[in-house]
Design a protein around this nucleic acid. Structure first.
Lengths: 362, 362
DNA sequence: TTGTATGCGTTATCAA
DNA sequence: TTGATAACGCATACAA
């Protein structure tokens, strides 16, 4: 299970905490707790503050000998850079912003984890925020973030394309799960998974399919729907869009009546959350899954195998998308563009219990 | 359903985005996009920069007339303060840090939402981070945050008491779901819910109970266990600690064998996640819930009613805790201590389908 | 390779 | 009430 984490050993973490009040250098009046500065280090190492700055920010521009003296002094004083002071002249904070539309949506868990990981790897801090599925809040949050981060990553944004481009005029923006012209975008290859899924359903005897969409403005929902249509046409299967709603469990429940009315024998849902909601609602009405109806989700979120029956779904490379986004961003920021190859982002069919052979007695 | 959010109307958000490049003031060489400063405002309003600073930071210290002139100029230039420049002399950022142990744990969803809400209310930004259940990472994250926020809120921290106190010597700390001496702590009254739960089980005929604990270092797990023991003693019911593990679905599953071996007819789990895992694992082994065994969770997380049967649980005031924590923090920071009364944080029994009458044939 | 001088945008101290 | 000026801590262009 991916959720098992490292040990709980307390170890000797206690003394890893900085002293707080620097060593008793005599330079400061405020005896209480003045954080040590590069001036303190300079004094201790017997060099000029600017040399300290050089040694600490971009090593290599100072002799090996003084470099060491400075590092030792810094360690002794337990020095940590003042990020504000550094940000003032440079404008950079070594912080990236990640905005998701809904923290409670498990689809974002892996995106977040992947982004965190990649950021930590290159010593960046990730600042997380959510828009609670509101375009307006998303804009507010993004603007607020723009003031303090080096770049913004938008996961499944609710903003319009133009607004995103506007945002990108201030700070670099990378978008995940959506294609926006002239903006770095990461989106997985949907067709791969959909092709397999349609083939899978056809093999089970289904001929009349349905799609329950997400929010109408959702770029990803449209793309998934297009892909499904294309593959169904190719396989000569009938398919129709029967409902659309919030990308939540509740949204899925609400689509139940429309699904029943449609008469399809298998239904794609915009995402796993909706699939779960739909399945529950249908089951409550006595409909058996997959005997009476097959249900398919998207994403393969954590918990999609906890339902009864476990959900068949089209898996998205969430973690890779999150990680890929920050890597791309960092490459742009460091100028080392495309040092990292874009990862191959493929979707993949995961067959579990919610899809089955089409029922006879219909 | 609490997850339904506001509309998706695109509205006319587009022109809410700042121009980016300030009005063509002639003062700057870099024609591209220099953000307007208080100097630009001062020039436009015909006053001294320091007056602008006063007018914008703490209104009232400047004449009504010039105040308006300055505000108008600021609006015209679409001025926004440079948070780094402001933080340099003041050390304050109007940002609060919230650290949770696991972003995927639904119990934190409401804590986060409550905190976000309360922060936004007083115009503070919330910076969210997770420790992935590791004390070591928690310390790293907290220290990193300490450099840029005005205060840190620790939700169900994994750190030791002493480490938390150490942290608090640098920045104000508020702890949620744990009691730490000399640190502002918010923890709900556990006994209320436990009392009702024990009474509920007793009424159903149970006499031999069990508790599946969370991580051994978990303060909250210990507290819950103590409370359960106390109430069971009072009601003359037998109860024993049969297992302990990670506070996850997986952790619950792993407790299944110990639970079966124990022979209790009803079991409390440290939290809903574990209860769900335990229930699933038991059901897989053919045990019927609640006919063969009653299961009770803690927290009442989103989704705890999605299981079959829906989970009976002891509800925690999560949202109130999150909101209460930032309000307490803000009160401390603003000096207006205890302007806000501490909210009453009570737990409450929620009876659903996973608890039932004790079986006869045992 | 290192030191000097200056700027980054605000707030704060002191006069006026 | 307002203006001048010095921090705040770091980075950097330029000089040595």
């Amino acid at each position: 299970m991916a959720r098992d984490d490292e040990s709980f050993k307390e170890a000797t973490l206690s003394d890893a905490i900085p002293a707080g009040d620097g060593a008793p250098t005599t330079h400061s009046q405020r005896s209480h707790k003045a954080a040590p500065t590069i001036y303190d280090i300079a004094e201790l190492a017997g060099v000029n503050p600017s040399t300290v700055s050089r040694a600490l920010s971009k090593p290599g521009r100072v002799s090996v000998k003084t470099q060491k003296r400075i590092e030792d002094a810094a360690a002794e004083l337990n020095y940590r850079v003042n990020v504000f002071a550094r940000a003032l002249p440079t404008g950079r904070t070594n912080t990236l912003g990640l905005i998701v539309s809904d923290i409670t949506n498990p689809a974002f868990f892996d995106i977040i984890r992947g982004a965190e990981e990649a950021a930590a790897e290159r010593d960046y801090t990730l600042m997380l925020a959510e828009s609670t599925e509101s375009a307006e809040r998303e804009l507010t949050v993004a603007q607020r973030m723009a003031a303090t981060v080096d770049g913004i990553i938008l996961a499944s944004p609710r903003l319009g394309d133009e607004q995103i481009r506007q945002l990108a005029t201030n700070k670099p923006v990378v978008v995940v799960n959506r294609q926006v012209d002239s903006i770095t975008s990461l989106v997985a290859d949907i067709d791969a998974g959909v092709t397999d899924a349609v083939r899978h359903l056809a093999a089970l005897g289904h001929t009349k399919l349905a799609y329950v969409g997400g929010p109408e403005q959702s770029w990803m929902s449209s793309r998934r729907w297009e892909s499904i249509q294309a593959r169904c046409a190719w396989s000569s299967l009938e398919v129709s869009l029967v409902a659309a709603g919030m990308p939540t469990v509740d949204g899925g429940s609400k689509a139940a009546t429309a699904v029943r009315a449609d008469g399809a024998t298998a239904v794609f849902c915009y995402n796993d959350l909706m699939a779960i909601g739909l399945m529950r609602e249908l089951q409550l009405a006595g409909i058996r899954v997959p005997d009476d109806l097959s249900i398919l989700g998207f994403d393969n979120i954590f918990g999609s195998d906890f339902t009864t029956p476990p959900l068949s779904t089209i898996k998205s490379p969430l973690r890779e998308s999150g990680g890929g986004a920050v890597r791309r961003m960092l490459d742009e920021l460091d100028g080392s563009a495309s040092s990292t190859m874009s990862p191959v982002l493929r979707t993949e069919l995961v067959v579990r219990g919610s899809t089955g052979r089409v029922s006879q007695e219909k």
